[in-house]
Computed example of a mutant assay.
Amino acid sequence: MAKQGENNVKLGLFVLAGLLVMMVAFYMIGKNRNIFGSDFELKVRFTNLNGLMEGNNVLFSGIQAGTVKSIEMINDTTIQVNMVIDSKIKTFIHKNALASIGTEGLMGNKVVNIQPGKDAGSSVNTGDLLTAQHMISTDEMLQTLSKTNNNIAGISAVLKTTVLRLDSSAIFDVLNDKTIGPSLKSSLSHINTASKNASDMTMGLNSLVIQIRQGKGTAGLLLTDTALAGNLKQAVRKLKLASDNAGSLTAQANIILSSVNHDMNDGKGTLHALLKDSLIVQKISISLDNIMKGTDGFNQNMEALKHNFFFKGYFKKQEKKKQADKKLSAQ
């Protein structure tokens, strides 16, 4: 009987020990503690935890690396988070790694994300303090979205007013006019043609300038030939001299005309007598009439001599000689 009671006590102690071990195991599993491995501790300081609590997960490059062990208030602006990290990941975490607070999914629990630094560095040691990186939280995103929505609402109201004004203006009439499109295309085509023509003209002018610089063509000779330039200067000098002479002759002619005009106005000189004395003019007219009559009589006498017996042979010889000269000149 005593032996059976002893066995019952041993069984009760064994069951109690198993329950204690099971409770400890459940506690460790609930805290994401490494039961059969070793851990090490890292620290990071934030200004705002955004709801991070003890026991939340710690991720390294998206991989489960440990849990948040404890949270300590350093001062009114600094909060220190102590993390327990699996020692298997220790070699991969360097001292220049960055720690930030994120969320599991869109609305899940808060987690600490550890990201590798840009440059290679030495591995961390137990108790090292990592650099904190500020990440935009969901609340900040929602506030920004709220401000953006308000701005969009204001812009939409302004756009609505602008569109209503444009609808009542002549701009839409211009846009709806089907004849503007072909006219605009034609104008652009003309502009393109004009641009090509201007380009061709520019190339032609460049070529002409190059030829002139090389002394080619008339313009090149005029600009580059020193001898021709000297001849031009001499010709211009002669033209100037001729112009001066013409000016002198004009001045002398003016003097002569002034003298003649003075003589005519004063009734002096032969020209005045010829132009203004009617008696002299009448005598000159009679003299010219007598000369014409005398010339006519002389012609009649010469015609009579041609038919005279003594002079008839002479005139025939002269006529034959003229015919022979005409034949020679024709040949």
Rank of each mutant, 00 (worst) to 15 (best):
V158D: 13
N254T: 08
G117F: 05
D289F: 05
I255P: 00
A242M: 11
G127K: 00
I114F: 07
G5H: 14
F309A: 14
V174L: 15
A219V: 12
L164V: 01
D325P: 00
F310Q: 09
S199E: 15
I79N: 03
A132H: 04
D177H: 03
S156G: 03
M107D: 08
S207Y: 05
L205N: 13
T179Q: 13
S186D: 15
N32Y: 08
N75P: 06
M23D: 14
E41W: 06
M28W: 10
K90C: 07
N75T: 03
H190L: 15
S123A: 15
H190Y: 11
K196M: 08
K293Q: 11
Q282N: 08
S61R: 14
K118W: 12
K240H: 10
K268P: 00
A157P: 01
V9Y: 10
V281S: 07
D128G: 02
I35L: 14
I63Y: 04
D139S: 12
S100A: 14
G108Y: 02
E72S: 07
S199H: 10
A304V: 03
E72A: 06
V260G: 05
K147C: 02
I93G: 00
A17K: 01
V24N: 13
L42Q: 00
T162H: 00
F315G: 02
D86F: 11
I191R: 09
V58E: 06
S199L: 11
V158P: 00
S187K: 08
A253P: 01
S207F: 06
M302V: 14
Q214L: 11
G55W: 10
S258K: 05
N48G: 02
L142W: 04
I85Y: 05
E104D: 12
H307L: 13
N96S: 12
